[in-house]
């Protein structure tokens, strides 16, 4: 009876030690869920979700602090992906947070005074310029976050919608055109 008790105590101590050791040895740095959510987000770093970038928003979603429908650049598809990833219900966009067509910022170089305020606002360093030198946008790296528009003291930045050209053109989903064959 006593020996059986000792055996049980021994086993529990041993297993406890193994568990404790592996908890330290195989500790996961950071929350892997955050990385997964961050991978779904469009990385515009625009802050439209109310968080200062995509990573903080991902962290807030992971903690359950933020809804999954706060990212307009990700579009409806982004919400679906997040819902799939997190196993939650799909939530449509709220009022006033509809996605806009893709655009890149453009600096009117006639008006720019070279104040560098937009350089400091750009989350992806996509603006080239220096103090009292004209600034310009690297269009290929602009995410269209619009964060440079507000700080500009002379309102020389505008958003140009990205048009479709031959290289970005897509085949459309096949549809059958409806034809009215007879008047009612």
């Amino acid at each position: 009876m006593i020996s059986a008790l000792w055996v049980m105590v021994g086993i529990s101590l041993l297993l406890g030690a193994v568990l404790g050791f592996s908890a330290i040895k195989f500790k996961v740095e950071g929350n892997p869920l955050v990385e997964k959510i961050d991978a779904v987000l469009p990385q515009t770093q625009c802050g439209q979700c109310g968080y200062p970038g995509c990573k903080p928003y991902a962290e807030a979603i992971a903690k359950g602090e933020a809804g999954i429908n706060k990212c307009p650049p990700g579009g409806d598809e982004g919400i679906h992906k997040l819902a799939d990833l997190l196993g939650v219900e799909y939530v449509p966009f709220g009022e006033g947070t509809a996605p806009k067509p893709k655009a890149v910022a453009f600096i009117d170089e006639q008006t720019c005074i070279g104040c560098t305020l937009c350089l400091q606002a750009c989350p992806v360093d996509a603006i080239v310029g220096a103090a009292k030198q004209m600034h310009t946008i690297i269009a290929a790296e602009c995410t269209g976050c619009e964060l440079c528009i507000a700080p500009c003291p002379v309102d020389c930045i505008s958003m140009l919608p990205l048009g479709e050209d031959i290289s970005s053109w897509k085949w459309q989903y096949p549809t059958i055109p409806l034809v009215q064959v007879a008047a009612q």
């Binding site: 961050d38 987000l41 469009p42 990385q43 515009t44 770093q45 970038g53 995509c54 989350p123 992806v124 360093d125 996509a126 790296e141 995410t143």
Partner: peptide
């Protein structure tokens, strides 16, 4: 690819 580039540039910034 664009998102990956933006992420890299943002983290570097």
């Amino acid at each position: 690819q664009a998102a990956e580039l933006a992420r890299e540039r943002h983290e570097f910034r």
